[in-house]
Design a protein around this nucleic acid. Structure first.
Lengths: 198, 198
DNA sequence: ACAGCCATGTAACTTGTTACATGATTTT
DNA sequence: AAAATCATGTAACAAGTTACATGGCTGT
């Protein structure tokens, strides 16, 4: 929902045309996530279908302006007022992968962790590259960009910490523990063939 | 892709039937993300369409078994060998929201941060509830569950740290900076109406 | 003239997700 | 007998994403 909500939030500031929306999104998110132009028009039509925006006039240059509706404005307020829900519904890919790898025949998981750490370190290195942006953090542009970089760094650091914790856990447990009693009192009648069991 | 890949990885351990797959996914991910059964069957059909799994026999009880193909096995290997890509392509909802809120008329962003922090703290409290799971961390079940909990906690902690950094940045900058020169040398011809500008 | 950006749009597709229908078996 | 769980499936939809077609305008 981020793209959808973002476009809506931008339109809440005043009418825009499609191409402009892309530039605004790009600018306001520090150009961290390139957005295909086509998606703008798709999203606008879906927002229109849902009564959150309305097609406005076309100016002399042929720009098709879109304006937010009252419902749209209300949704923006809701969005800003309600926290981003993570963990509960949203699946964390790395978490799932680690957990799953832990239930798969051993040896794998150590490799998974190693590869992931390398990737994270490389990313961290990239993020700390000073070439990032010429915008100073004194403008809102720079501020938004700085916030985004903070977020990206923060996320990578969290991943690295998680990987460390995972390794600790693995080291603390005897390696045979992983294959121990995987099929306990599970489905009773639901596991006739033993094939699926680790 | 997490569900898709997870099911494939489980099937790589041996044939399963649909309902069983849900139980396995549930078990191997510490029951952190409930999975609608219907999605299993959808995903299986899509995996079959892509030649990654094949319908197997039906046993006496009527269970329809699915088996992984060679391509499927190869994809599992690929999955396990390649790190989860975050940040680059994947949009971070909270990051986007903060960055965007920073470019919106002031006052909002402080509220956003406050609301998000409350949500994170509440979640952290929930996660640290000891009622979580009765499974000991000595089995792979418990290990997987522990890894998932680690991941969830880690993510929330990262969010909290990010919120703190964001507040620091906001405090460090004069509040008028946010509205300063938002429309610099941007689209040249692309911003005729001033409406969209903050 | 030509390359490249600005600008709008369309079509197709992916994964995730839910709601529902259906029946068998098990538990209470 | 009724309620719950097991089990398979179908239909529809949401949001994201890409590739492509089509022009106009701009700079070299």
């Amino acid at each position: 929902m981020s793209v959808r909500q973002s476009l809506l939030a931008i339109l809440d500031q005043g009418p825009c045309y499609g191409y402009q929306l892309r530039a605004e999104f790009d600018r306001r998110t520090g150009s961290a996530w390139p957005l295909n132009v086509g998606q703008i028009y798709n999203t606008l039509e879906r927002l229109e279908r849902d009564g959150l925006v309305a097609r406005g006039e076309t100016d002399a240059q042929g720009h098709v302006y879109w304006a937010i509706t009252e419902s749209g404005s209300a949704e923006v307020s809701d969005w800003l007022a309600s926290p981003v829900q993570r963990g509960a519904a949203v699946r964390d890919e790395l978490a799932i992968k680690l957990a799953l790898a832990a239930t798969l025949p051993r040896a794998e998981i150590a490799d998974v962790i190693r590869a992931q750490r390398e990737s994270c370190l490389a990313r961290l290195h990239d993020l700390q590259d000073p070439l990032d942006d010429p915008a100073s953090p004194d403008t809102a542009d720079g501020l938004a960009g700085a916030l985004v970089r903070d977020a990206l760094v923060s996320a990578v650091e969290a991943d690295l910490r998680l990987l460390a914790r995972a390794e600790e856990r693995l080291a603390r447990h005897p390696r045979h523990a992983l294959r121990l009693e995987l099929d306990r009192e599970r489905p009773k009648r639901g596991r006739p063939a033993r094939s699926a069991v680790v």
